[in-house]
């Protein structure tokens, strides 16, 4: 018998801010609570450009999904998908091809419940409640949905989430496990905060998030490169968000983008 009664999950407390709802708030969404908005304000003080960064990150997600669609990908595994907000993967993908399938993965209760609400009535998209840093469990649950065919290339998305994975969780082993589960020709879209751009603001963000449920771990260019083992980076490699295959002329300042983005192809 367990000595500690631990079946009440943490994180259901709406008084505790969550990164997923913070992101929603920064994107101008309404799926958030007072505590999330308070954290959002602190975040904005540390990084005044945060709303733009959120927008750029979301836009990168869209471009990455469409890029993969152009390259034949029709099934996606979105790790750490968070609160469904503006422009979700299944919306983007299914607009391009209604047959596209998406499995979302998130661990946070409210994000999962919310995703289920949004996905009700869509037979080609589902959310599984798993910790994305536990690839075995995630892949098992993803297989059980029956939506993904792991003999065909898969688009794996980890957009704006890996900065929540601490070094001790062995991020490269996590990505390697996902890489090993998908066939050649699969893609990985990746974005995460870096201290290479605006180090002072980044330090401020780390400080703000330290006290939240989701402390952050920015990574340098070379650290990000190290995560792409077994993947071949597609052009233009690892770049600040707005420089990754911009649509038309880019007008955003890459130096203030805060986040590196990259897409790799499994070779």
């Amino acid at each position: 018998m367990s000595e500690q009664v631990s079946w009440v999950p943490e994180g259901l407390d709406t008084g505790m801010p969550s990164a997923a709802r913070l992101y929603d708030y920064l994107l101008g969404g309404g799926h958030n609570f007072a505590a999330d908005r308070m954290l959002g304000e602190k975040f904005l003080r540390a990084q005044p450009n945060a709303r733009t960064i959120a927008r750029l990150n979301r836009a990168f997600l869209r471009r990455a999904v469409l890029f993969m669609m152009d390259n034949g990908i029709r099934q996606f595994l979105d790790l750490g998908s968070g609160i469904p907000t503006v422009g979700n993967v299944h919306e983007i993908a299914q607009k391009a091809d209604p047959e596209a399938r998406v499995v979302y993965v998130d661990f946070e209760e409210v994000a999962v419940a919310h995703s289920q609400l949004i996905l009700e009535g869509d037979p080609r998209a589902e959310i599984v409640q798993e910790d994305m840093t536990k690839p075995d469990a995630v892949l098992k649950a993803a297989r059980e949905t029956g939506l993904l065919d792991f003999t065909q290339p898969v688009g794996v998305l980890t957009v704006g989430v890996f900065h929540f994975v601490p070094p001790e969780a062995d991020p490269s082993a996590i990505l390697a496990a996902y890489r090993d589960a998908v066939p050649r020709g699969s893609y990985l879209a990746f974005s995460q905060f870096t201290q290479d751009l605006q180090p002072e603001e980044m330090a401020g963000i780390v400080e703000v998030m330290k006290k939240s449920q989701n402390p952050m771990f920015p990574r340098t260019m070379s650290e990000v490169e190290g995560l792409f083992g077994g993947f071949e980076l597609v052009e233009p490699g690892i770049v600040p968000l707005p420089l990754w295959r911009p649509e038309g002329t880019n007008t955003d300042d890459p130096d203030k983008a805060g986040i590196y983005a990259a897409v790799g192809r499994k070779v």
């Binding site: 009440v8 259901l12 799926h31 958030n32 419940a113």
Partner: peptide, 27 residues
């Protein structure tokens, strides 16, 4: 729009709570 979204997130919260309570009951 904000009301709608708040309504939605509240439904999500309620659902999540129900699920946790169900898990609790099973436990």
């Amino acid at each position: 729009d904000a009301f709608d979204q708040q309504e939605q997130i509240k439904v999500a919260i309620v659902r999540a709570k129900q699920r946790v309570e169900r898990t609790l009951k099973v436990s």
